[in-house]
Amino acid sequence: MLAPSSKYFNRDDVVKIYQQHRPQYNKDVSDKIMEFVRKHHNSEEPYDLAVDVGCGSGQATSLFASHFREVIGIDCSHRQIEEAKLGNKFLNISFLVGDAEALPFKDKSIDLIFTAAAAHWFNLPKFLNEASRILKPDGCMGLFSYCFPKVGRSLKDAESQKIDDAIMWNHVWKHISPNPPTEPMLKYANIFKNIKAKHKERNDEVKIKYTWTLEQIVGLIKSYSWYGAYLDMKMKSVERNSPNAIDGLSQAFKQSMGVEHLQDSDVHLEIEWEIFIVLATGLNHTGQNE
């Protein structure tokens, strides 16, 4: 991850929030990527080496532990890497500090490069140059992410969802929506277009869904770099002493549900993300800046 995001994600308070409140990807994500790898790779599992670039605190790294002899997570935030090491339970997974644009691996040595909610922070031409350099001739790349989640008391109930969408818009999205990275909003459409490869494809079929508490949902919002940008702008404005945008989120949900007496940790909502995955093999990026 690059500045300015790395500055936000390197803060001690944000590192803890990130680890606790970012969603865990389900097996469907790794299944889609490994299906692509098996189709295009010349050898059989377990493959030698996979690299999780922009790994953060390791939310997605472990998904691939059973498919590779070694998985390495790399991130430019030393605090995120410290947190990833603390939470690591796999002998074949390790973590190191490094940049997506200068990956510390030998030419043609990697079977799979993957990134989870990170590629939009990279200098894309330089990252793709590096991916082309270090991937084996039959090596593969999988870039996946998500955008705004859908939140509601029952995502299948259209009437209540209208109310819940309005609450999220008024207390969250309209305040931070001027600041989100463009590519997640476009589901990596531009990234996909700019990849030069023998074969590339995308998959938008995977969803991850949980039942979370209001406390968890507020923590998730605070983990976004978008929220950090909102706070920075607010501190420079005439409204710097006013309440933060999300301060009224919990109360608005509880009033709407008639449960004002409950703590945030006792109020449960459904939350769902649509995952988009960009897949490629036979990368052909050789220029330094393109």
Results as ranks from 00 to 15, higher is better:
Gly219Met: 04
Phe68Glu: 05
Pro149Gly: 10
Asn42Gly: 15
Met233Arg: 11
Trp169Cys: 12
Val218Thr: 06
Asp52Arg: 02
Asp247Met: 09
Ile191Glu: 01
Gly98Tyr: 02
Gln251Glu: 12
Met34Phe: 10
Lys32Asn: 06
Met1Arg: 05
Leu124Ser: 06
Thr211Leu: 09
Gln24Phe: 06
Ala131Met: 14
Tyr8Glu: 02
Ile221Arg: 02
Met185Val: 11
Pro181Val: 08
Val71Asp: 10
Ser265Pro: 11
Lys209Glu: 04
Arg153Glu: 03
Thr115Ile: 00
Phe253Lys: 03
Phe105Asp: 12
Cys55Asp: 00
Glu215Phe: 08
Ala60Pro: 00
Asp75Arg: 00
Glu272Thr: 11
Asp165Asn: 12
Leu231Gly: 09
Leu155His: 12
Ser154Pro: 01
Leu262Val: 01
Tyr47Gln: 14
Leu86Asn: 09
Gly287Glu: 12
Asn88Cys: 14
Thr211Met: 09
His120Thr: 09
Gly287Trp: 05
Glu82Thr: 02
Leu143Trp: 05
Asp165Phe: 08
Lys162Arg: 09
Trp212Pro: 03
His175Asn: 10
Glu215Arg: 14
Val71His: 10
Tyr188Ile: 00
Ser94Gly: 10
Lys7Asn: 06
Pro46Asn: 15
His120Pro: 10
Gln20Arg: 11
Lys32Phe: 01
Trp212Thr: 03
Ser132Cys: 15
Val259Arg: 11
Ala117Phe: 12
Pro104Glu: 02
Lys236Tyr: 09
Ala166Asp: 11
Lys126Pro: 04
Ser66Met: 02
Leu103Met: 04
Glu82Met: 02
Asn129Phe: 15
Glu82Ala: 05
Tyr224Thr: 06
Cys76Pro: 14
Asp28Arg: 15
Asn92His: 08
His261Asn: 15
Trp121Met: 08
